[in-house]
Computed example of a mutant assay.
Amino acid sequence: MTSRRDACKIALALGAGAALGATPLHAASARASELITRPIPRTGERLPAVGLGSSATFSSAANTQDAQRLREVLEALLAQGGTVFDTAPSYGASEEVAGTLAQQAGIADKLFWATKLNVAQGGKADPQQARAQIEESFRRIGRPVIDLIQVHNVADVPTQYAILKELREAGRIRYAGVTNTFSRNRDTLVHAMQTEPLDFIGIDYAIDNRDMEERVLPLAADRGIAVLAYAPFGRTRLWDRVRGRTIPPWAAELGIASWAQFFLKFVLSHPVITCATPATSRPANAIDNLGAMRGELPDAAMRERMAQHIADL
């Protein structure tokens, strides 16, 4: 089966062929090229189903001399049909470096910027500090309107989300939400979903991390809340699990060419997931990841087959 590196080469070659006006070899090629998008329930605006996160390796690169390479990652995101870029002030230099690089490349207005807010200390947030952090995000991103700001890890939602609602009403941000990546905060997340007019939530969700299917994803469907899926590779957990192994031959039925696409297509096959945002600092990996939002997605039976395959490794 195709390795991650070979899959990236194939994606680059296909992209070059499309740019040159190459004719598809058969009808399936056209279907495979169709971009998977998902609607934001509150407005119906459609987003490409795979984006780019900026924690982990992206954040590490932002703090080094490799930062310029991140411009290529952002450009690869757009070239492959993606738009969603998820960041946060707490991700080291990610927000500032990405904002600078995007402005230098002239692509800042083409991205769907999703950032976060959290100045809570000891469970409470100072409104003045919260507003100052938001203004700093505006400065870094360099746009008069930010697409999405979320309260990071449901910290003092009453104080911080009230500010986001005010900004949304004023037209300075388009969407507002909350995130949660800790199981201990699950009840706080559910309460916020039940009581606040959330446009988005951001959660951890992966083929071996499906707890959110029990309460959170059904509630998001009921409440009309868009969902960003963080850590679709389990951070490094899933990569450790499949190291030295090839993807199963039957994955080709879905056009899966790499483990990254295997993991991402599973995540995207849940109908409530709006967009998955895997982080990477390598353009080739970004191209591989973005390949998951083309072609077929697994049905319920295939989802369980995929999950069981990983569980058995």
Results as ranks from 00 to 15, higher is better:
Thr188Pro: 00
Leu238Cys: 07
Asp240Cys: 05
Leu238Trp: 01
Pro232Thr: 07
Trp259Glu: 15
Thr87Asp: 02
Gly244Ala: 02
Thr87Ala: 12
Ala120Gln: 04
Pro41Arg: 05
Leu77His: 09
Ile10Thr: 06
Arg46Ala: 09
Gln128His: 09
Asn153Lys: 11
Glu214Gly: 01
His26Gln: 10
Leu313Ile: 14
Arg305Met: 10
Arg223Ile: 05
Arg42Ile: 10
Trp239Pro: 01
Thr100Ala: 12
Glu213Thr: 10
Val216Pro: 05
Arg282Val: 12
Pro127Met: 06
Ala260Gly: 14
Asp208Pro: 00
Leu47Cys: 09
Phe233Val: 03
Leu25Met: 08
Leu74Cys: 07
Arg71Ser: 11
Ala130Gln: 10
Gln160Asp: 08
Ile201His: 09
Ala19Met: 13
Ala221Trp: 00
Val84Ser: 08
Gly44Ala: 12
Asp187Met: 08
Ala32Thr: 02
Leu77Glu: 03
Arg303Tyr: 02
Gly142Met: 10
Asp6Tyr: 08
Asp156Trp: 03
Ala176Pro: 09
Arg186Lys: 12
Asp147Thr: 11
Pro283Ile: 09
Thr64Lys: 15
Leu290Gly: 15
Leu290Ala: 14
Arg237Lys: 15
Glu135Trp: 05
Ala16Cys: 05
Leu297Asn: 06
Val145Ser: 02
Gly122Ala: 11
Ala30Ile: 12
Ala11Phe: 15
Leu117Pro: 00
Gln121Ser: 13
Lys116Gln: 07
Leu238Pro: 06
Ala11Asn: 14
Ala56Val: 09
Ala226Ile: 03
Ala62Gln: 04
Ser55Lys: 00
Ala114Pro: 00
Ile107Asn: 01
